[in-house]
Simulated assay, not measured.
Amino acid sequence: MIASIIIVILLSHTIESSKFTIPEATIHDIQAAFKQNKLTSKQLVEFYIQRIRKLNPIYRAVIEVNPDALHLAEIADQQRKNKDPISRFGLHGIPVLVKDNIATKDKLNTTAGSYALLNSVVPRDAGVVKKLRESGAIIRKSKHD
């Protein structure tokens, strides 16, 4: 009896996991959806922007979204379409949220939660941000905790 219940649970999990949904997707799932033309980076970024707009008034976790995120997603989609070598990287076209104490040399603020640092300019991306960008990630900022 227990074995049959376990098999049913495993089968139902397999059936449910075969349906692609963004909130439950892994990076591997997202990359597979990109390759199968079921999803674009632009659609993914739009989904997360909508999610942030919906949930951020409650959780107040995201300080800002990169104003270039949609443009960067369109570039990633074009690179994928053109079979650009960078499009083979695992994070290519996937939005990534970084804390606001991690330096980003773009339009995002690096404030570490302090208004005194608002509009300050950092000399370069932090090492982790550099590596994320080299892997094709699209960067956004979350609050420093």
Results as ranks from 00 to 15, higher is better:
31 Q>D: 00
16 E>A: 15
49 I>R: 09
83 K>D: 15
131 K>F: 06
112 A>W: 05
145 D>A: 14
63 I>P: 00
133 R>C: 00
70 L>N: 08
73 A>H: 02
124 R>N: 13
125 D>K: 05
34 F>A: 00
110 T>G: 07
132 L>R: 05
6 I>C: 05
12 S>K: 07
144 H>A: 14
130 K>Q: 14
37 N>A: 12
115 Y>F: 12
79 Q>Y: 08
119 N>T: 07
32 A>V: 11
38 K>A: 06
123 P>Y: 10
91 L>S: 06
82 N>S: 15
134 E>M: 09
12 S>P: 00
124 R>D: 15
35 K>T: 09
31 Q>L: 01
20 F>N: 00
45 V>T: 11
9 I>Q: 09
52 I>P: 03
46 E>G: 00
87 S>W: 04
114 S>D: 10
90 G>M: 08
33 A>S: 13
113 G>W: 05
60 R>W: 00
137 A>Y: 04
3 A>H: 08
54 K>H: 12
38 K>I: 00
83 K>W: 02
127 G>I: 09
71 H>G: 10
71 H>L: 13
35 K>N: 15
30 I>Y: 00
133 R>W: 02
46 E>M: 03
143 K>H: 10
47 F>L: 08
71 H>W: 06
76 A>C: 04
97 L>G: 12
98 V>N: 09
102 I>G: 04
98 V>F: 07
132 L>A: 06
141 K>L: 09
111 T>W: 04
109 N>E: 10
27 I>F: 08
50 Q>Y: 07
23 P>G: 10
103 A>Q: 11
81 K>V: 05
68 D>L: 13
99 K>R: 12
87 S>Q: 06
129 V>R: 05
113 G>N: 05
33 A>R: 06
46 E>W: 04
122 V>C: 10
96 V>H: 03
103 A>I: 02
120 S>K: 08
98 V>Q: 07
127 G>V: 09
139 I>S: 04
